[in-house]
Structures are given as structure tokens and as C-alpha cells.
Simulated scan of single mutants.
Amino acid sequence: MKLLIRNLNRATTEDQLKTLFLSYGSIQSCTLVLDKVTGASKGFGFVEMPDNGEAKKAMKSLNGTALDESIIRVKKAEDKASKE
């Protein structure tokens, strides 16, 4: 399951995000979305977890918690194809 993590502190790193989610299970991928010009974080990212049960537990537990002085929001990411 692919999770969208929003409201990240711009200083948060992929390693910090990965470490946070690893406590809930295995991670397939972890990506921060970066500005193409500056290379700075845009304040959101994605974590993919192969086990849906672990992903749901992480989403429920981490949504609304503090990370680097920001209250993060975690939800299931929508597929690009379903938006069109």
C-alpha cells in the first residue's frame, strides 16, 4: 500500500521518514518530493509498504503525530490513473 505523508517539516530527511515507518513493518520505498529547481523538500512524500495490515497500522498510528515539530498527516495515496 502506498501512503501519502503531508505537512512534513522541510528539514525532514528520507532517512528520518523511513526510520519512523520501519517501526511498523517493512518498507518497499520511501520518497520525499523535491522542488526541481531548488532541490528542497516540498513538504510531502510517499512511503510504500508491501503488507497492507502494517501500512494501515502505520497510517492509523502516525496520522496527527509530531515529526520535526510538524504535525504530519498520513493517508492512503490515490493512484494517478484513478484521478483521470
Score class of each variant (00 low, 15 high):
S29A: 11
F44E: 03
N52H: 12
R10V: 07
E84R: 15
R73M: 11
V47L: 03
D15M: 04
G53V: 10
A11S: 11
E84I: 12
P50Y: 10
L62M: 11
L62N: 04
G43P: 01
E78K: 15
D15H: 08
E69M: 07
A81M: 08
A77I: 02
F44I: 02
E69A: 09
L17H: 01
M59L: 04
L34E: 13
T12S: 05
E69Y: 11
T19I: 06
F46E: 01
T19R: 08
K75V: 12
M59A: 05
K75E: 14
Q16H: 13
F46W: 08
V37L: 10
F44K: 00
A81Q: 12
K80F: 15
L22V: 06
V37G: 05
A58V: 02
D35G: 03
D79F: 12
G64T: 00
S26K: 12
F44Y: 15
D68V: 07
S41L: 07
L3G: 00
N63E: 03
L4P: 06
A11M: 05
E69T: 01
A55V: 01
G39A: 08
G39K: 04
N52G: 14
R73S: 12
L67S: 00
G64N: 03
L20Y: 05
Q16D: 13
T65F: 01
L32T: 04
S26M: 12
G45W: 05
G45V: 05
S82F: 15
L20H: 00
E54G: 07
A77L: 00
S70C: 10
L4D: 02
Y24Q: 07
K56L: 14
D79W: 11
E69I: 01
G43Y: 09
I27C: 07
Y24M: 02
Q16Y: 11
T19C: 03
L4R: 09
F21E: 05
K76E: 09
F21W: 04
A81E: 10
T65G: 02
T38P: 05
N9H: 09
E84L: 15
A66T: 14
D35N: 02
I72S: 03
E69P: 04
G43N: 02
L8C: 03
F21I: 04
